[in-house]
Design a binder for these strands. Structure first.
Length: 421
DNA sequence: TCTGGGGTCCTAGGACCC
DNA sequence: TCTGGGGTCCTAGGACCC
C-alpha cells in the first residue's frame, strides 16, 4: 500500500509562509528570467491564471487583480522541502522523495494501529504543525492509483485532503470521472492517440487489454494500465539512483549577440555542471555544448546547434572541461544570430579511478594537486558563494538571468532571517 | 519586447558481428 | 538467376515527469 503526499501550491505556499500579510492575497511564482508562471496560490488559481503561461500574456490580470509575483527562490524552496521530507521520514518507515514537493510512503503495517484515512489526516496535521505547509494525501495499492487519489484529495475539499482508494469500487468510481490525461504517465501526445482509439476516461484505459496497449503503444503504457487495475508494477525507490547526466543551461536575461559574452555564459555553465559532478563524486567523459535562438520568435532567424566531444580520460576537473567547451563553442558559434539560450551537458559517468583505457593510451595520472585545487574551490565557494571563479566566467555577467522579484533566503542565510518587530 | 530548467526511460534504425 | 538469420551496441529522437 502506498501513500502519495503532495504539498499544496508548494512554491507559492513557501512565499506566503514568511509573508503573513499576504495570507489572502493571490500569489504567483515565476520561472527563471521571470518568464512563466510556475506556481499559483489558490486565490491566483481562482483568477484563472493558468500554469505555465508566459508572464507578458497575463501582466494585465496580475496588475488589475493585485496579484503579488515572486521570482523563483530555490534556496528557500529546497530548505522547506527538506523540512517536509524529514518530517515524513519520522512518520513512515520507508519514504521515496519523488520531487521537491512530493513523496511516496510505504504504508505496510500502518493499518494495524489506525485506519489509513486516520493516518493520512495525522500526516497532514503533523507536517503542517512542523513546517506550516499544507499537504494532501492519496492512498492506494499502486503508485499510479495513489497519484489519482491525491488528485482527488486536492480537487474535492470535502475529502478533508485525504483519499483512501483501497476499495476497488471507489477506484472505479473515481477513474470514471477522470479524463485519461490526468493519469500519471499519460501526457498530451498519448492522450490524443488514446482518444483516437475511443479511450477518453481513466476507467476506459484501466479496462483496456494490457496486451492491446502494449501493441499500440509501449511497455510503459502497459505498466500504467496494470497499475490502474491495482497490479503494482512500480516499487518504492528509497535510494536516489546515481545520475546519468548533468545539465546546466539557462535562457539569457537579454539576447546574446557577442561571442565573448557567450564564452562567459558557457564557462559559467561548465563550472556549475562540474561542481555538481564533484558533489556526485563522479567523473564524466562526455561533454556537449548547445546554443539556440528563441523558438518563439517570428522575426529572429532560427538557429540551433550542438556538438559533443569525448575526453581521453574521464575527469571532474573544471579546467579540462572549460578548455574542451571553448573548442566546441568555436565550432558552433555563428555571427549574426540573437542567441536566447545555451547550455552544457555532462554524460558517460565513471567512479573516480575506474575507466577502460584504449590500447595505446598512456595510463592517466590525476595529480593530487589537481584534485585538491578543485576541492579547495568547492569548499571556499560553499562558505561564501563566488569567492573563487575562472576568469572566463566573466566579472559582470551581463547576460545572466533576471530575478527582479526575489524574496529573501529567509531560512538559509543569516543576513536574511526574517525579523519580528 | 517578453515563453524555465533538469531529468528519465523507451524505441527505432543503422552499423557491425558471425 | 539465385544473396540468411540472429544477434549486440550505439545514437537520435520522442515521450513523459515535476
Amino acid at each position: 500500500m502506498f501513500a502519495l503526499v503532495d504539498c499544496n501550491n508548494f512554491y507559492a505556499s513557501c512565499e506566503k509562509l514568511f509573508r503573513p500579510d499576504l495570507a489572502d492575497t493571490p500569489v504567483v511564482v515565476l520561472s527563471n528570467n521571470d518568464g512563466c508562471v510556475v506556481a499559483r496560490s489558490k486565490e491566483a488559481k481562482k483568477l484563472g491564471i493558468k500554469m505555465g503561461v508566459p508572464v507578458f500574456q497575463v501582466r494585465d490580470v496580475l496588475h488589475k487583480q493585485g496579484v503579488v509575483a515572486f521570482s523563483s527562490n530555490y534556496a528557500l524552496y529546497a530548505d522547506m522541502s527538506q523540512r517536509v521530507m524529514s518530517t515524513l521520514e519520522n512518520l513512515a518507515p520507508r519514504v521515496e522523495v519523488y520531487s521537491i514537493d512530493e513523496a511516496f510512503l510505504d504504508l505496510t503495517g500502518i493499518n494495524y494501529s489506525l485506519s489509513l484515512t486516520e493516518f493520512g489526516l495525522q500526516v497532514r496535521r503533523i507536517v503542517h504543525k512542523h513546517t506550516g505547509i499544507n499537504v494532501c494525501v492519496g492512498i492506494a495499492p499502486t503508485k499510479t492509483l495513489a497519484k489519482l487519489a491525491n488528485h482527488a484529495a486536492k480537487t474535492w475539499h470535502k475529502t478533508g485532503g485525504v483519499v483512501d482508494l483501497t476499495c476497488t469500487e471507489r477506484q472505479r468510481k473515481l477513474l470514471a470521472l477522470l479524463p485519461v490525461g490526468e493519469v500519471w504517465g499519460i501526457g498530451g501526445k498519448l492522450t490524443k492517440r488514446l482518444q483516437q482509439l475511443g479511450i477518453d476516461t481513466a476507467l476506459q484505459l484501466a479496462d483496456a487489454e494490457p496486451e492491446f496497449i502494449r501493441q499500440h503503444f509501449s511497455v510503459v503504457v502497459e505498466r500504467t494500465v496494470r497499475e490502474l487495475r491495482g497490479e503494482s508494477c512500480l516499487a518504492l525507490e528509497q535510494l536516489a539512483p546515481t545520475k546519468k547526466q548533468i545539465i546546466s543551461s539557462r535562457a539569457f536575461g537579454d539576447r546574446i549577440t557577442d561571442k565573448q559574452q557567450m564564452q562567459e555564459a558557457i564557462s559559467e555553465y561548465v563550472s556549475r555542471a562540474c561542481k555538481k559532478l564533484r558533489q556526485e563524486q563522479q567523473h564524466a567523459q562526455y561533454l556537449t555544448v548547445f546554443l539556440r535562438t528563441s523558438p518563439f520568435s517570428d522575426t529572429d532567424a532560427p538557429y540551433s546547434a550542438s556538438k559533443s566531444i569525448a575526453l581521453d580520460t574521464p575527469s571532474s576537473d573544471t579546467r579540462v572541461f572549460l578548455a574542451k567547451a571553448m573548442q566546441l563553442l568555436e565550432a558552433l558559434w555563428v555571427n549574426g544570430y540573437r542567441y536566447a539560450k545555451a547550455g552544457v551537458m555532462l554524460a558517460d559517468f565513471y567512479d573516480p579511478g575506474v575507466y577502460q583505457p584504449s590500447l595505446f593510451d598512456t595510463p592517466p595520472v590525476q595529480k593530487d594537486t589537481d584534485k585538491k585545487l578543485m576541492q579547495l574551490m568547492d569548499t571556499l565557494n560553499s562558505k561564501h558563494s563566488k569567492t573563487l571563479w575562472f576568469a572566463s566566467q566573466g566579472t559582470k555577467q551581463e547576460w545572466s538571468m533576471k530575478r527582479e522579484l526575489l524574496s529573501p533566503a529567509y531560512t538559509t542565510d543569516w543576513q536574511q532571517l526574517p525579523v519580528v518587530k
